[in-house]
Design a binder for these strands. Structure first.
Lengths: 415, 415
DNA sequence: AGTATTTTTTCGAGGCTCGAAAAAATAGAG
DNA sequence: CTCTATTTTTTCGAGCCTCGAAAAAATACT
């Protein structure tokens, strides 16, 4: 059950709030912070004075040259880039990418590597990850005083506590406790996140007007993934990262899915499924391991040129996505959707069937008003999401510590 | 965005916590409350002294005669039944039921009425509701000093803010702002809740060990409804009460649903659907308006006796529920399920097909371990849920007031 | 140079929680 | 029957925290 609020929690929470306000607003003045947080000027003054003294925030002279106003000019508060750094590690099919990011959110170093994730041994996969992290940490060019947090992201299922990868399509191995492994190796707190959840977080930071309290990010890639923000919080399953939209059942006993089951949404809308249908291989055909982005783009071009099996394949994908979204909307009500990944570039081919299908569901009552946005490139989004997740952890747990972790409502998934 | 914590919020929150602890635990001593809330004995002493002085709590001599312990005996704290009262109004098909409940949760008066909800005019329906509430409020036998809150529940869809019924199967009329109507009429704060959500809340109070942080209540009745608790909070849609499990799509373009669409779970598992299949009327047959509980029980008996269309109808219902649950579990991970309503009494007929279907979904990976519980009688559950919801509102908003409602995380759905 | 205006800091007041110690209330020992 | 050990509850002063009001700071306008 929820736990009492101690007197000392007060300061901690309000510190966290000031830091969060600065991270969101960019260069807010103390007065602006007071307005958005609802705290008094005196309190904000005291807290920001502390934070500046601790090197967490910095004062920056009025950024705008056009200071037309009369009185004492506002002085903006900004995040001190040198207060800390975080590292992101994104592990995707045959590709490993890390970045070091300063406290203000700027990338200060990165490194990428191709690897054969599908055939690598478990130890080799882990070894590559730790090695690349070590290289970045030991880079003498980089004055990385303090990497305070590492956030990993992987396609697939992670556990609720963001400690381990439970299953992933990019490797045959399961249950790898990446967070613990990195923490043991480097002594830096780490979390293991789901890629689509990070996409959702990144969208929220990129465009808070459009993606605020309720929205959906769907990854249209080899598999189908989803990141869901509801009521301002990242939605996760009770045991796992959850939100396995791609494995909702579209047609009982339908097409063969990569997961071994039948009729999943992914078995109609994943790249391999579109490929399979376009090649007319039949719904029982074994899913191929990978379809290159170039091949997918060729498929889309063919579908746009003539009415053939390619176009029909995209129609089926749209239908599956539409019915799936309709079922999802029956549960959560409609919300803006961002389509991310290679096939988002072919959304023109998918959309008509999708809208037709969704209109036939209870959740799609006002299907006209549901807005879709597309973003073909998922990797930058995932990286940004990881960075923001790691940075907000630092904001809260390192720069505003003091609340003992108790049973109950600990660790809200604030997106 | 979230708002700063003011100094005076502290006391309010801790007051609310003490009240909540007493409501949960029954007759806890101050020492026990200190232990569960994590606050110091001094604080608990001060707060409970206030609350007793205000007539909200009462001291009760050591309830247990067997006070074997050595030192000063604990004195239990209880809710003062006279501190307030709440009223519940449950509106279901052809039936209206109200109850007055004291602050300690005991029913002190009730009244029930049959009506023909399907054919009544809008005004007549509203009139019946206000009339029955007025009779209870004006009852001279009852010393109802202060009904502090009214909670209504109805089958169907309500809005997120618990103000209005948006749509309900029990009446052709839509968008009735029951909460506002009652508030205007009687000047008592009211909310309009979804029946299945109230079931979920009641289950949590009845059996907190089984139904704690994550569970599902499914109403198997004429229609199919769902109440969902995730991470300790009632799950609602972004605009409506949400959780329209019955209208997730089971088979695209499948059986005709009462909602006018095709292939919804309800079109296979609702009473009318089981009836239709048992009578072999075909999937396009118009759903009947009502099937009596007696008829449903007869159907179940027939299905148990011989392998015929009745048994097949229950099998199809199980299959639809199983695939639906599988899709749901793909999103939220498996959780304990309570089946409520007439057809829960026929769960033996439903379960085999349900388990078989769920085992074929991604969400049902460990389908063996998913536990189902049945409760044939929904009405008492709904009433209890309403009562607890209204009482916790009183706990928080009347007896621990002081936090201004701002934009942001206001009104958590604590189940 | 003086005044108006806006932002930020300072300072005392009032609250809240906490820990330690005292007070209260009982069971058991002699 | 008295005294001691034990447990619960209250009391009290200390230490923080936030707040409002007033002062100080920094600029534009006249």
């Amino acid at each position: 059950m929820s736990v009492g609020i101690r007197h000392d929690d007060l300061r901690r929470r309000n510190r966290a709030m000031v830091i969060a306000a600065v991270r969101r607003a960019g260069q807010p003045s103390r007065t602006e912070i007071a307005a958005t947080t609802g705290l008094s000027h005196s309190t904000i003054s005291a807290i920001s004075s502390d934070l500046i003294g601790e090197g967490i925030l910095t004062e920056s002279k009025p950024s705008e040259a056009g200071s037309l106003k009369r009185g004492r000019p506002q002085v903006g508060l900004g995040l001190n880039p040198e207060a800390a750094a975080v590292m992101t590690v994104v592990l995707s099919l045959n590709f490993l990418s890390v970045a070091v990011i300063d406290y203000a959110g700027q990338v200060i170093a990165e490194e990428q590597r191709r690897l054969d994730t599908l055939t690598m041994s478990r130890d080799a996969l882990i070894g590559e990850c730790t090695a690349i992290v070590r290289r970045r940490l030991e880079d003498p060019d980089l004055d990385v005083r303090s990497v305070a947090r590492i956030a990993l992201a992987i396609q697939g299922i992670t556990d609720t506590h963001a400690r381990a990868m439970l299953w992933s399509p990019i490797t045959p191995h399961t249950d790898i406790a990446f967070a613990d492994i990195l923490e043991d190796e480097f002594g830096i707190p780490a979390t293991m996140e789901n890629d689509c959840n990070m996409m959702a977080i990144a969208l929220r930071w990129r465009d808070p007007d459009r993606y605020r309290d309720d929205f959906i990010a769907i990854l249209l890639s080899h598999g189908i993934g989803m990141g869901l923000v509801l009521k301002g919080e990242l939605f996760t399953g009770t045991h796992s990262s959850g939100g396995e939209f791609g494995h909702m059942i579209h047609r009982p006993n339908g097409a063969l899915c990569r997961c071994g089951r039948r009729g999943c949404v992914e078995a109609y809308a994943g790249n391999y499924a579109i490929w399979r249908n376009a090649r007319q291989l039949g719904e029982d055909a074994e899913p191929v391991a990978d379809v290159s982005d170039a091949d997918m783009r060729a498929l889309a071009t063919a579908a746009r040129e003539r009415d053939g099996p390619e176009r029909e394949a995209y129609r089926k994908a749209g239908e599956a996505l539409g019915y799936g979204l309709g079922s999802l909307f029956a549960l959560i009500d409609p919300a803006p959707v961002a389509m991310v990944g290679v096939s988002a570039a072919a959304f023109d081919l998918i959309e008509p069937a999708l809208r037709k299908a969704i209109a036939q569901t209870a959740g799609g009552q006002h299907s006209k008003s549901i807005s879709f946005d597309t973003e073909p490139n998922e990797l930058p989004l995932i990286r940004e999401g990881c960075a923001m997740r790691a940075l907000t952890f630092v904001d809260q747990e390192i720069f505003a510590p003091g609340v003992q972790a108790r049973a109950g409502s600990v660790g809200k998934n604030v997106a």
